[in-house]
Design a binder for these strands. Structure first.
Length: 176
DNA sequence: CCCTGATTCGC
DNA sequence: GCGAATCAGG
C-alpha cells in the first residue's frame, strides 16, 4: 500500500505543530495516518522535542535488559534538572485544524449495530454522520472515538487526511 | 480497561 | 533513522 509514506518535511512539520499543541501521540498518529503512536513518540524524541511539560515521570528503564547486567561500581549520575520557574503554557483552543468539510464515505463496512442516534451518542463515540440528517434514519457511526477527537480512528483518518496525501485518496462515493 | 509518554534495541 | 516491544504510570 502507501509505500512512499515516511517522515517527509510536511509530516514532520505537522507532527511538530500537533505535539507542541499538546496533542497526544496517539491522536497525532491517527491524523498522520500510517504510523502508530510508538512511531510518533519515537520521532518526537529523535527530534528532541520530547517531554516538555513534564516533571520527571519516567527516569526508569523502558525495556529490561535480559542478560546484559550493568554490574559495575559506577552509579549513573542523573542530571539534575534546573529549577525551571514556570512553563509558559499559552492555551490555544483554536488550532488551525482542518475541519471535516467534506465527509466522504468509503467502502469499508462498519458494524451497523454500532450506529447510534444523537440520543445515544456519547462523548467517546464517533460522530461520523451516516445517512440523511433530515430523516429519522439518520445515525452516527458510534464506534469508539479517539479521545479528544470526534471520530473513531477509521473516520479520523478520512476526515484529517494530510494535505499531501489528500489529493490522491479522493473518494467520493454515495453517502450511507 | 481505557489511556499517557519514555526507553531500549533489533532492524 | 525507524518503530515494536516494553515499561511505568494516570
Amino acid at each position: 500500500m502507501e509505500a512512499g509514506l515516511s517522515w517527509t518535511d510536511e509530516r514532520v512539520d505537522l507532527l511538530r505543530r500537533l505535539w507542541e499543541d499538546g496533542q497526544s501521540a496517539s491522536k497525532i498518529a491517527a491524523q498522520l495516518g500510517g504510523v502508530t503512536r510508538n512511531a510518533v513518540i519515537g520521532k518526537v524524541h529523535r527530534l528532541g522535542l520530547a517531554g516538555r511539560v513534564k516533571a520527571a515521570p519516567a527516569p526508569v528503564n523502558g525495556r529490561r535488559k535480559p542478560e546484559r547486567e550493568e554490574a559495575d561500581g559506577a552509579p549513573i549520575e542523573v542530571a539534575e534538572e534546573a529549577p525551571e520557574p514556570i512553563a509558559i503554557t499559552a492555551h490555544r483552543p483554536a488550532p488551525d485544524f482542518p475541519p471535516p468539510a467534506a465527509p466522504a464515505a468509503e467502502g469499508v463496512a462498519l458494524a451497523v449495530s454500532e450506529r447510534v442516534t444523537i440520543m445515544d451518542l456519547r462523548e467517546s463515540m464517533c460522530r461520523w454522520p451516516m445517512g440523511d440528517p433530515t430523516t429519522p434514519e439518520f445515525r452516527f457511526c458510534g464506534a469508539r472515538s479517539i479521545t479528544g477527537l470526534p471520530y473513531c480512528t477509521h473516520h479520523a483518518q478520512i476526515a484529517y487526511q494530510p494535505a499531501a496525501e489528500r489529493k490522491r485518496d479522493r473518494r467520493v462515493a454515495g453517502f450511507r
